[in-house]
Design a protein around this nucleic acid. Sequence first.
RNA 1: GUCGGUGUAGCUCAGCGGUUAGAGCGCCACCCUCAUAAAGUGGAUGUCGGAGGUUCGACUCCUCCCACCGACACCA
Length: 496
Amino acid sequence: MKKKFYITTAIDYVNASPHLGHAFEKVQADVLARYHRALGEEVFFLTGTDEHGAKIARAAEDAGIPVKKFVDKNAKVFQGLVKALNISNDYFIRTSDKEVHWPGAQKMWKALADSGDIYKKQYKGLYCVGHEAFVTRKDLVDGKCALHKKEPEIIEEENYFFRLSKYSKQIESAIKSDKFRIVPSASKNEILRLLESGLEDVSFSRPSKDLSWGVPVPGDSEHTMYVWSDALVNYLSAIGYGHSDAKSRSNLKRYWPADVQVIGKDILRFHAAIWPGMLLSAEKPLPKILFVHGFISVGGEKMSKSLGNVIDPFSLIEKYGTDAVRYHLLREIPPTNDGDFTYEKFEERYKSDLAKGLGNFTARVVNLGARHIMGSFAPRENRKTKKEIEETWIHYRKSMEEFRFDEALQAVWGLTSYGDKFVDESKLWELPQKDRKKFNLYIAELCTILANIALLLQPFLPETSQAIAKQLGIKLEDKKPRKFKLKKGESLFPMV
RNA sequence: GUCGGUGUAGCUCAGCGGUUAGAGCGCCACCCUCAUAAAGUGGAUGUCGGAGGUUCGACUCCUCCCACCGACACCA
């Protein structure tokens, strides 16, 4: 049986428009999904939206539209982003989906309750009337809410709690032993430090009177599930958890545990502590790898609405194309550290790497070849080229295993640079007149290089890969091309 | 405050005990003309954040300091 690969992204909170950071996460996950598909694995790739909570209910109210309409509208925007980025997800889950998600969330709740890990407790907190919500001490300045300049009231309410403390040790050992691996190690260490002092139980519900926009607690209509008990379960409900039909059961059995869960560093704690705690309580295996990416700043400043520097991925895609945006995010932004975005750097990379690099190399080879060779011809590689290609693949695979997308791309560009040198050193353009046989051999050699580049780039720049394959007259599904038939095409990356 | 991360050429980063510290981009010069006025070759640029220490030898290990970033728990 084929190896399976289940990968998820965090689900996005739909209270605001997507920005470049959202795009970054999707693209990273997509590269992994496509890479594993290319390896022949049976991939299930999940992404989606988190649509519950008082914040959204309030945002909808401010906008003057019913909550359901509000989330439908915003979810569409996020789905639009996924499409615009050419993300190859197999499913898009929405936590407001009563058919698909709710049964899963409620089943999880019952599972936790059956394990004796759900209990009721008085919760005492600082309630800000302005927020219509509890605030933390962090939000206070001189004892007053920083936003509303009012002293918060101390309010007690009864909530359900999840006995997370019980699983502290188990989670710690799973992370330490890498059975539940957290990438990068900085994130792993951060969470281990937290675990050293043990985890506290977490509040898992809110009174329905305060939070009605969410999944009802099973058997207690007075309470609504709070974010963790609801949202985290999406990773399971999307593959059938909570459903008893045959297909759901087999999907769940087939795909869980997730092989990689991609998240941002802001939600590390929830995915590395609460989520594994829930899974342990429900007697489900833990995900294999939690991959934590950093944030994107803009010109050294935090991307934020108040600074007005939010980068809109849609307009970037519209101007430069999907693959150019994908390339930039994967090549320029380090996979697990914070990265910086500026339009200047974007254009610089676009010009040097894409237009003058890959695009120009492809054009010079295909144009020259197509002009002089009409028929089809077989691939060829001399010893040096063969070695170059092999080494590129080794470097590339190693980088992919380490989630170093930037390094993998660097390796591919080494191959285009090799090809450019090959053209120059052989003075390829003189050969049709001087040595026709040699010319044919060299073109075959260069096409072999290009075919490998197309294959290497498949997970990263799917459209570009296809475009190269089309100009070479090959099919990428064949893995190893048997013969080429050149056809001049459009510029891969026109100068803008 | 505590804990952690980062600090290497103008930019993005690699190197992490051992010859004159590297790559790509950018810059300058040369050169080719097949190609998207692209490619190729050569070159300049670094007190490897600072100060001490360990060592025959440190960008690489230790201590202290500085700068930036993050976490410090329920952010509803």
